[in-house]
């Protein structure tokens, strides 16, 4: 059944003279990382269930440039941005949805000034609307008795003030979130941002993901919910560090919802 994904590319649609309503930007992690690919697939299943008219760029997609920008390589960032904007404007893209808060932030805040003006959604925002519009229907009681905490990604939360969309999706799933001591604007980074994902840490007492996961585990959860593939990787590593991978799962909101909808 996992082979039943309906995914078209922008190029295919363009050849038929069609334009989708929205572009799903998969992002580098979502395309290549084994764990993140599962999140991508879960999200696409939801889009299929809700019959959203979407397409992906496929091999025409490229890094948004976010890690380069945050690491100080503004040059590379702008080259990437200009190339991506050319591609997207070529397809007359109006709306973008992405599962990556970094891509989301970059499109939303940094592309407009370079000529890329789109309406940008994080997948949790789109999923919230699909639930509100009744296009996705929750199967009740799916998470009864499952304690779940939620980790705010920096670039969705503090970076863009979006604390509610992911929480609303969880509430729709009848989940009573067990909040960590630091959450919403006081949330603590998972340690991946600012290009840290791609290098070893500086001399330190402990890894940031260990620090953050400790707090998550203090809520005694069965599931730690995330909304970013990078956070997912980091916190999964944290759970392994504490030898809890048998008891605690790290799941994206899209995966939780996919399991919990009819």
């Amino acid at each position: 059944m996992s082979n039943e994904l309906k995914v078209r590319t922008m190029a295919e649609l363009a050849a038929e003279g069609k334009e989708p309503e929205i572009l799903f930007w998969v992002g580098c992690a979502g395309s290549f990382d084994d764990r993140a690919k599962k999140i991508t697939r879960a999200f696409v299943k939801l889009l299929n269930k809700a019959e959203v008219d979407f397409a992906v760029l496929g091999t025409e997609e490229s890094c948004t440039g976010d890690p380069a920008k945050r690491a100080g390589n503004e040059f590379l960032f702008q080259m990437q941005a200009m190339t991506n904007i050319e591609v997207m404007n070529g397809y007359n893209v109006k709306k973008i949805v992405t599962t990556c808060p970094h891509c989301y932030n970059t499109f939303k805040n940094e592309y407009p000034d370079l000529g890329g003006k789109y309406q940008v959604f994080h997948h949790t925002e789109l999923l919230r609307s699909l639930l509100e519009e009744g296009k996705l229907k929750v199967e009740g009681g799916k998470y009864d008795g499952v304690d779940i905490t939620y980790h705010d990604p920096c670039y969705l939360g503090r970076g863009n003030g979006q604390y509610e969309a992911p929480r609303e999706v969880l509430r729709q799933l009848e989940i009573d979130i067990k909040e960590m001591k630091h959450h919403k604007e006081n949330s603590v980074c998972c340690g991946a941002g600012g290009a840290q994902m791609f290098k070893e840490a500086e001399p330190q007492k402990e890894e940031i993901f260990v620090f953050r996961t400790r707090e998550a585990l203090e809520t005694q959860p069965k599931v730690i919910a995330t909304a970013c593939a990078f956070c997912n990787t980091m916190i999964t590593d944290g759970v392994k560090f504490f030898n809890k991978e048998q008891e605690v799962k790290v799941l994206d909101i899209a995966e939780l919802l996919e399991e919990g909808t009819k």
Binding site: S31, T59, E61, S62, A195
Partner: peptide, 28 residues
């Protein structure tokens, strides 16, 4: 390590050493 990441983005459009041609493999 960051220079490597830059090179990857420049050459394959991703911070890791994966080919851009494999971007849609997750589908299948």
């Amino acid at each position: 390590e960051l220079n490597m990441m830059f090179t990857n983005i420049e050459n394959n459009g991703a911070p890791w050493q994966y080919s851009q041609m494999d971007r849609l493999n997750w589908k299948d």
